[in-house]
Design a binder for these strands. Structure first.
Length: 417
RNA sequence: GGAGGAGUGCCCGAGUGGUUAAAGGGGACGGACUGUAAAUCCGUUGGCUUUGCCUACGUUGGUUCGAAUCCAACCUCCUCCA
């Protein structure tokens, strides 16, 4: 492994962020000699980013932390086209309003742990819609197209693969890398940006930008990618009981976020602590040495730290406390995720199956029915085997709620209103 | 523009007239075992007012007692030729 001298590269390298880099030594020198501006692009296809993007966000954080200037680039323009890579069918086209709404949601995530503003080290939020939407085709071809070598584009691994297999490659897909390359140039001109970072799947696209920038701006640009983060057992990261692990609290409750980290596989604890928390490395080294049941303590710390970063210290403490009560004492914790139901409905009696569907624990009555048969359903910690069971006001606990559980980990409180 | 091929459940994929809600695998969920881990084993995996009914094999129509399976038109995708 290369020994880096700059704080930023050293940190990234020690924490396991670096997968590929176009010129590690030169980049290291650059970080030593000046305040570097670097960017990472984010798609605006959903209202929130999910944990998959967290690695990238953490890199922005470390840039800021080590005294450099990160740019978070919203793909307001490229999302309108839709990145076809890795897709076997075209994404449905999003409207301008949808994209704007998504952008706002995503921005909220960043505000949690990056400082935005006008200062020299504040994070810049840019949007490629600002320059891409106004492009004129012929102008673009004359300015950019003449510098782009089709020969080189054909050399790209992703392209070669498609050609060799005689698989269809649309012109749109072929162009996507140009737009992304052009982003890099535009950011170099506007902000003096010299580095683009991203996931390893972006390596080719990023390199296109490096090449193009060198030609157009006569500046040495750099590329750096992170490894694809999978769990130790090989699964793609980011699934939980509740579905995708979204970063926005509206899409995934802090408690569920905490649980996601708490359920990390043993073999991943050290690696995740390095990537997803800001804890010092010696502390992490100590934690990852823990064995057996003791490792659970490290997982809790991971969950606490990760949740704190995303949702704040208060939410993290609550989540931890809720989990402790729920799992270690088996008691009813008041801050479990809850849904409200009209008091009148409860007095009339709510069918068990309907309640589970309403709480979002089951997808349909049939699903709920199957779970009852499978012994997964408990009400107020009492196993229920009768699918015709009706919930009434009598089921309210002393705390005035009804606790619905599905399996050992999923719990929802029904709160009459 | 011409010729050929394909469209099946969350995904992959079998099925070429009848016990097919549709083999098999993956994924997901649940149970057992554990440490809220992994691995392993077991179960579930269209909907509903569930001993029954409804909806489903690209879309629409047709043949038939009966169609995912046969026919026609259309839509979408792919490959090759130009």
């Amino acid at each position: 492994m290369t020994v880096y001298k700059s704080d930023f590269m050293k940190t990234l390298s020690e924490r396991g962020f670096i997968y590929q880099c176009s010129d590690p030594e030169a980049l290291d020198r650059l970080f030593l000699s000046e305040t570097v501006t670097a960017y990472i692009g984010f798609d605006c296809t959903a209202k929130s980013l999910h944990v998959g993007s967290l690695v990238q966000i953490m890199m922005l954080h470390w840039m800021q932390e080590t005294g450099h200037r990160p740019i978070a680039l919203m793909g307001g323009g490229t999302t309108r086209v839709g990145d076809p890579s890795g897709k076997d069918e075209a994404r449905k086209l999003l409207t301008g309003e949808e994209i704007e709404a998504n952008k706002a949601g995503i921005r909220k995530v960043f505000e949690g742990f990056l400082n935005f503003g006008e200062g020299p080290k504040d994070v810049v939020m840019a949007d490629n819609a600002d320059w891409l939407l106004g492009l004129q085709y012929v102008d673009f071809l004359r300015e950019i197209g003449r510098h782009v070598s089709v020969n080189q584009m054909l050399q790209r691994e992703s392209v070669k693969l498609r050609l060799e297999r005689e698989q269809h490659l649309s012109f749109l897909e072929f162009n996507y890398m140009l737009l992304q390359a052009y982003d890099f140039v535009e950011l170099t001109r506007r902000y003096g940006c010299k580095l683009q970072m991203g996931g390893s799947d972006q390596w080719g696209n990023i390199l296109s930008g490096v090449d193009l920038g060198r030609r157009l701006t006569d500046t040495e640009l750099f590329a750096l990618t992170t490894p694809l983060i999978t769990t130790a057992s090989g699964a793609k990261m980011g699934k939980t009981a509740a579905g995708a692990v979204w970063l926005n609290a509206e899409m995934l409750a802090p408690y569920d976020y905490w649980q996601f980290w708490r359920n990390t596989e043993n073999a991943d604890v050290g690696r995740f602590l390095k990537l997803f928390t800001k804890l010092p490395l010696d502390e992490i080294a100590r934690l990852e040495k823990l064995e057996g049941a003791e490792l659970n303590e490290a997982k809790k710390i991971l969950a606490n730290e990760a949740t704190k970063q995303m949702h704040g210290a208060k939410a993290a403490e609550e989540a931890a406390e809720t989990a402790r009560k729920t799992f270690e004492e088996g008691a009813l914790a008041h801050s479990l995720p809850s849904i409200e139901i009209p008091r009148a409905d409860l007095e009339a009696g709510i069918g068990l199956l309907a309640a589970y569907v309403q709480a979002g624990l089951c997808g349909s009555n049939g699903d709920a029915r199957r779970n009852v048969k499978g012994g997964a359903v408990r009400v107020n910690d009492q196993a229920v085997s009768d699918e015709r069971r009706v919930l009434t006001a009598d089921d309210l606990t002393d705390d005035g709620v009804i606790k619905l559980s599905l399996g050992k980990k999923k719990h929802i409180l029904l709160r009459p209103m």
